[in-house]
């Protein structure tokens, strides 16, 4: 599913999301990255039609929430940090209660995922830990044949073992080339391996939106002596970090220096240097 956001703005108290435009391709895993408070959750809620933008519009496969909300929701699964399911019901009962709304929901599939995620369908929702509640949401989202999966920072609550299962599940999910995943996180290690497309938000504005390869071609980490880095054209150095032995910098464009080594940045490095670029 193709997700298009056009000139999205949203004000919430002191925070505002400003003029976000992007088009997320279908069949890929999109990583939405940024520091805490960058606007990732707000953007995801707009994408899910939970928040109405002050300006701009969201289209999913060309359809908007105003015109075809039911069509979109039938095809969208979500994992959010808040508690979505009923505390007093068992996992099985929760699936049965909310599965009725989705035409393609299958209870057996839901329970299979629960077992795969090491959750007993007989447990009551109130007995689950935070990570387990997110697993429950994921199991449900995968059980109604969603075409778009929207996930708000789930990985931080998963143990390392389940994190591996989680990324396997995401890869299986997009394997047919028609489904898409939007995953917001500030833990970027895993995204480095699986994300095809990156949206980087900072203070409510979009700094970068593009595929990972383009990002890696556009930005590089230069490492070497500080004086060599300082000699690079100023406009190409986004931020430089002095260290005990040498220095490193995030640079933009095709600068070169035989005394320096250049390599592709990790997403964490990209986020770090971008956030420091104005001397913060």
């Amino acid at each position: 599913m193709v997700v298009t956001l056009q000139n999205i703005s949203k004000r919430l108290g002191n925070f505002s999301l400003t003029d976000i435009s992007l088009s997320l391709p279908g069949g890929y895993i999109t990583g939405l990255i940024g520091q805490n408070g960058a606007g990732k959750t707000t953007l995801l809620r707009i994408l899910l039609g939970l928040y109405r933008p002050d300006a701009g519009e969201v289209r999913i496969d060309g359809r908007s929430y105003q015109d075809q909300e039911i069509w979109i929701r039938e095809r969208t699964g979500a994992v959010l940090l808040e508690e979505l399911f009923e505390r007093g019901l068992t996992l099985r009962e929760n699936g049965a209660v909310y599965g009725r709304f989705f035409p393609k929901y299958r209870q057996e599939r839901f329970e299979d995922f629960l077992v795969r995620f090491a959750l007993s369908p007989k447990r009551r929702c109130s007995d689950l830990s935070r990570g387990e509640r997110l697993k429950l949401q994921l199991a449900f989202a995968l059980s109604h044949d969603a075409r778009l999966l929207v996930l708000d920072e789930p990985t931080g609550n998963f143990d390392p073992e389940f994190r591996r299962v989680f990324f396997e599940v995401l890869k299986e999910f997009i394997a047919d080339g028609e489904r898409s995943v939007v995953l917001a996180t500030h833990l970027t290690d895993d995204l480095d391996r699986i994300a095809d497309y990156i949206v980087y938000l900072e203070n409510g504005t979009g700094l970068f939106a593009g595929d990972v390869e383009t990002m890696r071609a556009q930005y590089r980490i230069a490492e070497g002596d500080g004086y060599r880095l300082r000699a690079l054209p100023g406009e190409s150095v986004i931020h430089m970090q002095e260290r005990a032995h040498g220095a490193r910098a995030l640079v933009r464009g095709m600068v070169s220096d035989p005394e320096l080594t250049f390599r592709a940045p990790t997403l964490e490095e990209l986020m770090y240097f971008m956030s420091k670029r104005n001397g913060e």
Partner: peptide, 12 residues
């Protein structure tokens, strides 16, 4: 309205 119901295929 339960939170989950906002994500279910229902309109306003």
């Amino acid at each position: 309205i339960p939170e989950m119901m906002f994500l279910c295929p229902l309109d306003a």
